[in-house]
Amino acid sequence: MRLDAILRITAKFVLPFILVFGLYVQFHGDFGPGGGFQAGVIVAAAVFLHAIIFGLGQTMRIVPPIVVEIMVPLGVLVFAGTGVAAIMTGLNFLDYSHLAHDQIHGQEWGVFLVEAGVLITVSGTMIAIFYAVAGRDRK
């Protein structure tokens, strides 16, 4: 990949926009299309692009495999933890109405946390599978 100046510069240019678009899809999911699943996949795609252009070693230095493997169960824990937190406030599992001072803000917090959990698990799983497949050598 030494000589592919155009590819490398274009990738450097595009990557921040992909990441910002992923965050937009994540946090604007309340108002427009999108949410944790879509944002997680977009963030994972940005990491894929980086790995394809700059090599797997570079990407693994930025996003270490151990972090990715922690992300896989962490998202589910955040999601289920939000549900348990709802039980602590005296409501049913995953009923967020009492998480903040009124129902609307409680729902907003609950949906935010749940979507964050989905984002973490989805992007972590995608990147972990990619690392596992791309890290193997041809026999």
Partner: peptide, 28 residues
Amino acid sequence: QTGIPNVVTSVLASYRGFDTLGETTVIF
């Protein structure tokens, strides 16, 4: 009830949060 204009998100994350938890567990 939720203050979320996008009904897809409110159904997915709030009304049917349990289903989405299941989906996330499937991915995990």
